[in-house]
Design a protein around this nucleic acid. Structure first.
Lengths: 183, 183
DNA sequence: ATCGTTGGTTCGTCCATTGAACTTACGGCG
DNA sequence: CGCCGTAAGTTCAATGGACGAACCAACGAT
């Protein structure tokens, strides 16, 4: 991002964090990565982001150690982007931001809810499990569609995210169909 | 911010939150507001932000209900910017981002620490008080300088923030001197 | 040989940020 | 009274980044 020219934003860990994740689109890329999106094209269609910008953001996130590029197929060569431990530790940020957005624009129904996968309880206001009281790490979170969510999104990736989904588990956008196709 | 052209970033509370606080500088303005900065010029010198951008961001934050403009003097007319309840509820976001930045760039000493004002205990990894276990709201947080902090910053606002400081309490930048001047 | 898919790069246009200069409203000083 | 200083902006030229369309490359399928 570079505030001022390069790093004029004094000594502050918030400013340094924003140098990495404060650019346009970056936190949405991280959000989708935490949701389980892993492929270039899947990010592309779900975000509607310009290709050049996506490539630049992925590169920045890799340099920052938030994502990791891994070859999952040799012929043709295909890579996927995985969330590192450092990226997973951005979950509190993403979750807090989403919670604030949900509280702030409360004119609409909740779009998604997050639950402790172990017990199914919906997470509290600060990301903790109401049962055990402890903060739930991203790998133990299950995302469920809320009443306000569009039931028929245009892109296959969003369609694959319509059902309940364990975070970080890869999203299967291969089938454009619903999990249990009726037709 | 307007992703895409206006609001192409589908239905997602994170995207909507970023429409408000995702623009360059905005979260740093919110951070300083939570720290107790209230005046246009104080934001200006502490952030090193262009005047036009600061004016635009303050306006955006007021429109979003995060800040509130209040006249504190009539002659000459002077206004200050106060954090609303909605702005205070951004504390989890700001705190989580700072915590991530601190963990990520751990090559340096911590710059500031946050404590539960009631008991003095340093906040846990998720903003909770280790004693009572509950999340500490921003009005009950005390900020203390850490070992990595520059002891002689250039601008008077940062100087006023050198000592322990209850969040949201107004920063007195009127005196450029230290709390207990030796000279 | 051609088409489609995936994962990019390049390029022209346009908008936002930047930093400097200018403006307004007032208080204080001599 | 004229001049200076401060707080809070607005205006403006130059620049940099985002946008979107087009192009490129490697490969599988037909």
């Amino acid at each position: 991002m570079a505030l001022g020219k390069d790093y004029a934003a004094q000594e502050c860990s918030i400013a340094r964090a924003l140098e990495v994740v404060g650019e346009r689109w970056t936190l949405l890329v991280v959000r989708d990565a935490l949701y389980g999106v892993r492929r270039y094209n899947d990010f592309l269609v779900r975000l509607g982001i310009p290709r050049a910008v996506l490539a630049a953001r992925l590169q920045t996130l890799i340099s920052a150690g938030v994502l990791e590029k891994r070859r999952y197929q040799d012929s043709p060569p295909r890579d996927e982007y995985l969330v590192t431990a450092r990226g997973r530790s951005l979950w509190p940020v993403v979750r807090a931001l989403g919670a604030w957005g949900n509280d702030t624009f409360d004119d609409t129904l909740p779009l998604r809810t997050f639950h402790h996968a172990a017990c199914g309880a919906e997470l509290g206001a600060h990301g903790e499990c109401p049962g055990c009281g402890a903060f739930v790490p991203v790998e133990d979170v299950e995302m469920r569609p809320g009443p306000g969510l569009d039931q028929d999104p245009a892109d296959p990736v969003s369609r694959a995210l319509l059902g309940p989904h364990r975070l970080l588990e890869p999203v299967d956008a291969g089938t454009g169909a619903l999990p249990a196709p009726a037709g």
